[in-house]
Design a protein around this nucleic acid. Structure first.
Lengths: 197, 197
DNA sequence: GTCTATAGCCAGATAGAC
DNA sequence: GTCTATCTGGCTATAGAC
């Protein structure tokens, strides 16, 4: 692993746990096992290091979403595939959703950068497909954007609010992971149940 | 409005927008229209000012939850009432969910403080009621904690990830608010649809 | 490329006048 | 109680030896 990679990985861990404002360059250096000056040598400054980490996190998630949403499947199959693949992916990167949401809230101007990015999550084709399947009588009438929001909510929220959720419904890490494992298929089934004719 | 209240309100705004680490005492003082030294005179230090704000935010939400969850209603009515009252409340305080989730993630040790708090959101009676209604054949079999998580997800997520959501599904502030208005009743209906016999 | 040492700044906190 | 002025520590960033 190159020095740059060591720094990048360390930065990802620290930024994801503490956020941009809470992260300390010294902590990243310690985590990477190198000197603080190297951070500036490799990435110029804190802002640029952060942007590298954030951009990377975001661009790992977006293709996951688009690959499923732009396939040739039916809406029901897309829901099944999305919940399964997204939860699988996020279980490997549990800090990612909270990190992205937090930094987007703290720096709303950032959002613009990613909305113009080629790899942004783009649900427009799925939205028209939903309209079509409603017209075809496959799905009960529902506002397509509401359905999309439901899918994201059920899938992402447990991870974004992980610590709070574990505390309120009183589950251990193991129980939480087991619940998420179940959700890979169960939430697709529930959403489909609630909208199928 | 007393000086202390002016400070508290200013602190709430700044902390909710920037988070603990990103907030600046100077910005809070400016927002309150008073001098920075007064912050320390009234609240001793940044940490204590933050804790006052956070505790207040949390203890505004928890009773909302418990009042509905511990009533004498059926599960279906509890779901209807919760989504309606929670969304109404949060539309008045749109930064609250993201703020709580962010700070809980950044300071996991905080969670313990609130789990022991008398006013913590306590869903245990609702959980046994769900078990009972499943046994009685009113609700289709589902793990009670999963159902609870579904309810929270559908209700809270759109607010917690507000900026991201607006960007991805491409809605204006007005459209977003209108969607949330609809969700007050629609998500209860969908959840109930997906679990009723 | 990698380090040590340090510059320079900024933010939290305090002293003390009024 | 409210202010101005200032201290102090910590953090980002850089200079410069190796």
């Amino acid at each position: 692993m190159t020095t740059e990679e060591k720094i990048f990985n360390a930065a990802r861990m620290v930024f994801q746990k503490k956020g941009f404002a809470g992260a300390r360059m010294q902590e990243i250096a310690d985590e990477a096992g190198i000197n603080k000056a190297m951070l500036h040598y490799c990435f110029k400054n804190k802002q640029l290091l952060f942007e590298a980490v954030f951009m990377n996190a975001f661009s790992q998630l977006a293709p996951q979403v688009n690959e499923v949403f732009n396939s040739q499947d039916t809406v029901f199959d897309k829901i099944r595939k999305f919940t399964h693949s997204y939860i699988s992916f996020v279980m490997e990167h549990p800090y990612l959703p909270a990190f992205i949401i937090q930094e987007m809230n703290n720096n709303p101007e950032f959002v613009m950068t990613f909305l113009n990015h080629e790899n942004r999550p783009n649900p427009s084709s799925l939205l028209s497909q939903i309209e079509k399947e409603i017209a075809d009588g496959i799905i009960n009438p529902i506002q397509p954007k509401q359905l999309l929001l439901d899918i994201f909510s059920m899938t992402v929220f447990p991870f974004a609010a992980q610590i709070l959720v574990k505390g309120i419904i009183q589950v251990s890490d193991e129980e939480f992971n087991q619940m998420m494992e179940e959700r890979k298929t169960s939430i697709a089934q529930q959403i489909i149940n609630s909208i199928k004719k």
